[in-house]
Simulated assay, not measured.
Amino acid sequence: MPARTRALAVTALTVLTAVFALSAGPAAPAPAQHAETPAPGDVVSVQDSAFQTLPGQPTGAKAWKIHYRSTSATGAPNVVSGTVIVPQDGRTGPRPLVSYAVGTVGLGDSCAPSSGFPKGTVVEAGLVQQLTGRGWAVVVTDYEGLGTPGEHTYTAGRSAGHAVLDAARAAIRLPQAGLSAQSPVGIMGYSQGGQASSWAAELHDSYAPELDVLGTAAGGVPAQLDKLVPVHDGSYGAGLLFMAAAGQDAAFPELKLDSYLNAEGRKLIAFLRANCVLIDTTVGAFKKISDLTVEDPLATPAWQKRLHESDLGTHKPDHPVYLYHALGDELIPYALGSRLRQDWCAKGGAVTWRTILLGTHVTGVITQSLKAADWLADRFAGSPTSGDC
């Protein structure tokens, strides 16, 4: 069986058997040298780790868990954890780097990808292996507050974009990875990872212009959070809505989510904050905002203002983007991805757009993973693209 076919098989098996990642608790970081003048992307600590796609299936890649400096949604300095993965393929020349952003894993610290990679419990590990199988280094951020002190700022777009870009900076600055400041960089993610990747694409020219980002591949992007409220309120995806509310509250404490909740609502949010996505979405399914609140926070001006701060499409990425969305996406409507494409195209962006005609939100990441990686490979090879706007 060809290597890429085996990688796809592992990916499909992983996603279809688990659907969402369930991760184990994080290990304590080992101390490392601090930069004299702290800056975003500086490595704070590093420890040896491991990368497995399934339990008991090592990949032959070296991995390190890192803590690195980044920036919150409000511009405050913070520290984020992540994993740097480098294939051991004997390559001696320059190696591309992909900053990979995972989809929703949950709000509890045990859900962090860096905790699950050594045990083979991260669903998207198979997708990451497709990238390392091409000889690329990969860095996977845990996002702000996931596996580090504080709450996970789930769906706060600017925070996630910073974490993705600073993960690339940190990987380049990690001596063990063997990368350099001239390493070509790609960005990739789906769902929550699609939001994070798209934010990284929009922020690149202002926040991390020194990174040689050649392309971003983003799929299933929740480009406008307020449009998801009527989709999920009272539906089987309601748990994601309440997780997002908790994430926004973590990013912007002045929102005071708990003050809007009744006793049942406070109990649910506390549960969601401590657990991973599979159980969170199960427990939160079909619940309504009106059943859990004394007042709907998402309808207030303060909450609407913060939600709109995560809107995408307001700034053209300074590099080509591969954007894809499933026509039958039941969790993030197709119209949101299509609108993002229109907004970027209207600003002169180089956007390649792909509609996934068959499938749902979860299957979309599988059916497009190889095509998205092929598109990134063309960018690393120097092939030009102006998109198909």
Rank of each mutant, 00 (worst) to 15 (best):
L211P: 03
A217K: 03
P230V: 06
A245P: 01
A245F: 11
G247E: 02
V213T: 09
G247T: 05
D212K: 15
G247S: 08
L241N: 01
H232L: 14
A208K: 05
A245D: 08
Q224W: 12
L241W: 02
H204C: 04
D205R: 12
Q248W: 10
E210Q: 14
A223G: 06
A238R: 07
G220C: 06
L225C: 09
E210V: 10
G220W: 06
V229K: 04
D226T: 14
F242W: 12
L211Q: 03
L214C: 12
A245Y: 11
G215K: 01
G247L: 06
L203M: 05
G234E: 10
Y207A: 12
Y236E: 15
L241S: 03
G239W: 05
A244S: 13
A201G: 02
P209F: 08
A223P: 01
A238V: 08
D249A: 14
K227V: 13
A208N: 08
G239P: 05
A238K: 09
L241E: 00
H204M: 03
G239M: 09
Y207T: 10
T216P: 07
F242V: 10
K227G: 07
D226L: 13
A218C: 08
G234K: 11
L240D: 06
M243V: 12
V213Q: 00
G220T: 04
V231G: 03
D249Y: 01
D205W: 04
Y207C: 01
Q248V: 13
M243E: 15
V231Q: 11
A244F: 03
G239H: 04
E202L: 03
L228M: 11
T216Y: 03
L214W: 06
A246T: 06
D233W: 09
D212P: 14
D233M: 10
Y207S: 08
G239F: 01
A201E: 00
G239T: 10
L228H: 04
L240P: 00
G239I: 09
G237I: 07
L240E: 04
K227E: 14
A208Q: 04
D226S: 14
A238N: 06
A218L: 08
L240F: 15
G247R: 07
L214T: 13
L214V: 15
L225K: 04
A223M: 04
D226Y: 09
A201Q: 00
Y236T: 15
A218R: 02
A223C: 06
A245Q: 13
V221A: 11
A201C: 00
H204L: 07
L225H: 02
L240Y: 14
